Amino acid sequence: MSKNWTDLSIALAGLFQATGLVEQLAKTGYVPTDSYKVSIESLFELNPADTLAVYGGNIANLHFGLTILRDVLQQASVGKQRPHAHADALRYSLGILHLQKKLSGRKDMLGVIGSRLKQAAQQAEHFSTTHDNVIANIGGLYSETISTFRFRIQVTGDYNYLQQQRVAHQVRALLLAGIRAATLWRQLGGNRWQLLVHRKKIADAADTLLRSIPLH
């Protein structure tokens, strides 16, 4: 069966959008509102009609993640040994893929995450999807579940931002959004081998999706 490289690229763009936002947040204390909102709201799309529905049904919502995905894969294809602009996002993404695989074998933890996300979705109806209370809830969920694995993602950046409780909650919520994207990727038949063997196909699919987004 041939892979649907477009769907796989959408899922990976969702992953790199979340980790790219973590990278930016940790270094600047700021994230672009629209991209951040899309990543957080993906956590509440538990029964999507299709892959893109996880991200609001509009490919433009993933412009940030698609750009990072394409750049990372294209640089890997060139094979130049120079520092990458998104080195941290790549490191976080690979870490999330590892954690998601661990999580897939923990039905108990998956059950807790599913039920708590439903509660967070109800909370978001009263506030908003990116309200501080909702993000604190999601961040706490990450701490109580994913953070209990022996392997942990070490987020690097500006200490002045990382020590702020608001930023810490946002980082954890985005890492959970990354787990959501990695889960979607696995459900579509994604595996790490593809990133090595078929990265050009994924990069080309990401580039095609980017070029389909209307310029404003």
Rank of each mutant, 00 (worst) to 15 (best):
R82Q: 11
S42G: 05
A85S: 14
T51L: 07
L73H: 05
N47F: 09
T33H: 12
A89Q: 11
N61K: 07
D34G: 03
A53L: 02
V112T: 12
D71C: 02
S115P: 07
H63F: 11
L46A: 07
K80I: 13
V112N: 02
D108W: 06
Q74D: 09
D108C: 05
P48Q: 06
I96E: 03
L69C: 06
V38K: 03
L99R: 00
L62S: 02
L52C: 03
R106C: 12
D108S: 10
R116L: 06
Y92C: 05
N47D: 05
G95F: 06
L52H: 01
G79P: 14
A76V: 10
G65K: 11
S35V: 00
Y92G: 03
K102M: 11
A85M: 12
V72S: 13
V38S: 06
A76P: 10
S104G: 02
A60N: 14
G114F: 14
A49L: 14
K101D: 13
R70T: 04
G111D: 07
I59V: 15
D34S: 12
G111V: 08
L97M: 12
S39G: 06
V72N: 10
Y92N: 04
E41Q: 12
K37C: 12
D71H: 04
Y92E: 02
K80W: 10
T67C: 01
S35M: 03
K101H: 11
S115R: 13
D71Y: 01
I68Q: 03
P32V: 00
G56H: 00
S42T: 06
L110I: 07
A76S: 14
G114W: 06
F44T: 01
Y55T: 00
V72F: 09
Y55D: 01
K101I: 07
G95K: 02
L99Q: 02
S77G: 14
D108L: 04
H84T: 10
Q100E: 13
R116Q: 15
I113A: 01
H98Y: 05
Q75E: 15
V38M: 11
G57V: 10
L103K: 01
A53N: 07
V78H: 11
T33K: 14
V54W: 02
H63E: 13
L43F: 01
K37L: 11
S42K: 02
L117I: 07
L110Y: 05
K102G: 03
R82F: 13
K118F: 10
L94R: 15
L99F: 01
K80L: 14
M109D: 04
V38C: 03
I59A: 06
L94Q: 14
S39F: 04
I96R: 01
N58T: 14
L90Q: 12
L69K: 00
V54E: 00
Q100D: 08
K37N: 11
S77W: 15
A85D: 14
P32I: 00
S42V: 04
